[in-house]
Design a protein around this nucleic acid. Structure first.
Length: 107
DNA sequence: CTCCTGACTAATA
DNA sequence: CTATTAGCCAGGA
């Protein structure tokens, strides 16, 4: 996979993340599937990781399959929690969200 | 080429 | 609920 192709894939991920409605969340796997690339959940995470700090993209609306904010080595975890709550999505101290009620169904 | 890693996931026990 | 195992695939050393 060339750099250019990867870039296109990332753009597709971004477009999908961008279509998650405010107040809803999606999972990495879900984004990958919608992008037509099942089993690429990890790359969704990496794509989001390369975003600039000042991006307008709602990257914080993406969680792992357990409905939790994915723990990661670097910062951003706390930030995501804060932003989700500001977005109207309840997050418990463990970083968990009730997917039953807030998972985006892909409308 | 092989080996290791990771903002992942699903199946079992 | 936690722990373990296996599958996944692009990237980098």
């Amino acid at each position: 996979m060339s750099k250019l192709e990867r870039n296109n894939v990332y753009q597709r991920f971004y477009a999908i993340v961008d279509s998650i409605p405010k107040g809803r969340v999606a999972t990495y796997g879900q984004v990958a599937r919608i992008a037509g690339l099942p089993r690429h959940a990890r790359h969704v995470g990496h794509a989001l990781g390369t975003l600039p700090k000042d991006t307008q993209l709602a990257w914080f609306r993406v969680l792992n399959s357990k409905g939790e904010i994915s723990p990661r080595p670097s910062a951003g975890y706390t930030e995501q929690k804060r932003r989700l709550r500001a977005d109207g999505v309840p997050v418990d101290p463990r970083g968990r969200v009730d997917l039953k009620r807030f998972l985006w169904d892909g409308e």
